[in-house]
Design a binder for these strands. Structure first.
Lengths: 113, 113
DNA sequence: CCATCAGTTCGAATTGATTCGAACAATAGG
DNA sequence: CCTATTGTTCGAATCAATTCGAACTGATGG
């Protein structure tokens, strides 16, 4: 009786991808709207707007890690959120300046909605 | 051999519902974001912003009637679009004043995105 | 070194949105 | 009246997004 241990050594090549955040000019309104169209992600954006930089755990403590990570990816790729690594922890911030410059008024509408 | 004709006389009681558009104060940002998170509906909003009042057929000529009607419903209930009946035709308009008043800058961001 | 912790990735299941045809209401026009 | 047209509603099928457990990477600290 041998315990089968499936080692996926190759497929995890592009793990912990460094900054897949779009540049200021590359932020697309379609991606921003799609990211905001989810209760959890909208809550995260509002919390970041009110409290500034926060860690992942502070933002979504009661959510499964894999689910939370999915939402971080959507928020990052949309251009709404930037991340900063500090040791093991990931610190997230709203890209307020970029968003205000690209879509003036949008964040205010979303936050004080 | 009788041809069964299922007559649904009761279930169509609330057909052609008159103005299920929310009032200015009742417009929710969540519904607006959800409505904008679809390529067809985003295209409709942008077309209405550029060309003003238009009929349903002018807006989505190549789309199935039932599918189009579904999208009109989403746009109406979100508060983005108002409708005016003229005979058989439905004329749609962007609720620009209401949206600019409720969420200043949002429509501009969406249209010139 | 080794165990732990934070977050990512994959694969599969569930859930939700979209789409379409058919039946329908309401109006328009002969 | 009768027929064609415009848009709605229902039901079912399809497609996309969300969710979760398990395996994994990389950093931390004994």
């Amino acid at each position: 009786m041998t315990t089968v241990t499936t080692v996926r050594s190759v497929s995890y090549s592009c793990l912990m991808e460094t900054a897949e955040e779009p540049s200021l000019a590359a932020i697309r309104i379609e991606a921003v709207l799609a990211a905001l169209d989810h209760p959890l992600r909208l809550r995260v954006v509002r919390t970041l707007a009110a409290r500034g930089e926060m860690t992942c755990q502070e933002l979504l403590p009661d959510i499964t890690k894999s689910t939370a990570s999915h939402h971080w990816g959507v928020l990052r790729r949309s251009g709404l959120v930037a991340q900063r690594r500090e040791g093991r922890y990931l610190h997230l911030t709203l890209r307020r300046d970029d968003l205000d410059h690209r879509f003036p008024g949008l964040l205010d509408a979303v936050v004080h909605g």
